[in-house]
């Protein structure tokens, strides 16, 4: 393939497919097994982490693989969250429908606002996405009659049903989160190893060169951003339906920064990195907040230390030093 010459960050040798598949399926198997052994608190937390990791994986598609540093991914998450929540609240549309509507809403936001934002690049892209996300945040407030603004609303229990199963039930919730997580993880993996993924990496590494090679860079980026938004929106919709709450804080700038943080921590451009980053960040906050009220201080210092000593994120550094085949 001609574009593979543009891929600078993966080794020339063919990656060992069996090993890669084994690793990722192994992770999923471990997560499945953990369902039976984890204490309740960690069981609940892991359900939530898996959903948020989908958000991070979506972000990774845009940032890690395509080099699109967005500061507005909260709008995609919020689009999924609110679409699913609002149709549950006002149209009595329950989980499977609400979830799909949420995903569609996120894709729609990507295909409109995202398509406009992609007319820019670099820092301008950061700001435009930031601004769009801020506008979405304010729009949620503006339509406070329906969204209840900052307070948000509780998703009716009766709508939190999937194929007759109660999504508020811990087992159902865990398995639903795991299913979504598995879909996003394997989707990311497939994408990273597909032609599309390679073209995206080529664009990330050298956009002009990719263009010169005849690729329609804009279309590829829009595809990447839309897929990214779909995952983020799926995470948002799932979050609302699984945990029963929809609120504007999930559309705030913080929730655009979190996935960036999770991805950078775990390793941008690695398939498992976003999940690792999400897990570590959750437990970092959780454990330090139990020990000290100054947990933000600890979180801050850990971030600084990580970036000093693991500049490519944990899995990025691991790949660089020990496991060059890691996707």
């Amino acid at each position: 393939m001609s574009e593979s010459t543009a891929v600078l960050s993966t080794p020339p040798a063919a990656p060992p497919t069996a090993r890669i598949l084994g690793l990722h399926l192994g992770v999923l198997a471990v997560l499945f097994a953990l369902h039976f052994v984890l204490p309740d608190y960690h069981h609940i937390s892991l359900s939530r982490i898996m959903v948020l990791a989908c958000f991070a994986m979506g972000y990774n598609l845009a940032f890690g693989y395509s080099g699109l540093l967005s500061l507005g991914h909260a709008m995609f998450f919020a689009a999924g969250l609110y679409a699913a929540g609002l149709v549950a609240q006002f149209a009595d549309i329950a989980a499977p429908g609400g979830f799909l509507i949420g995903v569609a809403a996120a894709a729609l936001v990507a295909l409109t606002l995202g398509a406009i934002a992609l007319r820019t690049g670099g820092v301008s892209f950061m700001i435009v996405t930031l601004m769009f996300a801020q506008a979405v945040f304010l729009i949620i407030y503006y339509f406070g009659t329906y969204t209840r603004g900052d307070e948000g609303f509780v998703v009716p229990d009766a709508m939190r049903v999937l194929l007759g199963l109660d999504l508020a039930d811990p087992t159902v919730r865990y398995m639903t989160a795991l299913a979504l997580f598995a879909a996003c993880l394997m989707g990311s993996l497939a994408l990273a190893r597909s032609n599309l993924g390679r073209v995206l990496i080529a664009i990330r590494e050298n956009e002009d060169r990719a263009r010169m090679l005849g690729y329609d860079v804009y279309r590829y980026k829009l595809t990447a951003l839309t897929l990214s938004a779909v995952m983020a929106g799926a995470a948002g919709a799932a979050y609302g339906l699984l945990f029963g709450y929809v609120g504007a804080s999930f559309a705030s700038i913080q929730y655009s920064i979190y996935p960036l943080l999770w991805v950078l921590m775990g390793g941008a451009g690695t398939v498992l990195g976003p999940f690792l980053g999400t897990v570590l960040m959750f437990y970092l906050v959780d454990l330090t907040s139990a020990a000290t009220t100054a947990y933000l201080l600890v979180v801050g210092l850990v971030l600084i230390a990580l970036i000093l000593f693991f500049p490519k994120g944990i899995l990025g550094t691991v790949r660089e030093r020990y496991l060059p085949w890691l996707p």
């Binding site: 920064i257 960036l260 941008a268 933000l296 979180v299 801050g300 971030l303 600084i304 000093l308």
Partner: peptide, 29 residues
């Protein structure tokens, strides 16, 4: 911090987010 990161743009973002937390918490305390 920053000089050791060689002013890498992405690394700097993370490091300064870290600083943001540190300064905020220090002032809160």
């Amino acid at each position: 911090v920053l000089s050791r990161l060689h002013y890498d743009p992405e690394a700097t973002i993370v490091a300064t987010i870290g600083m943001l937390y540190v300064i905020q918490q220090a002032v809160l305390m």
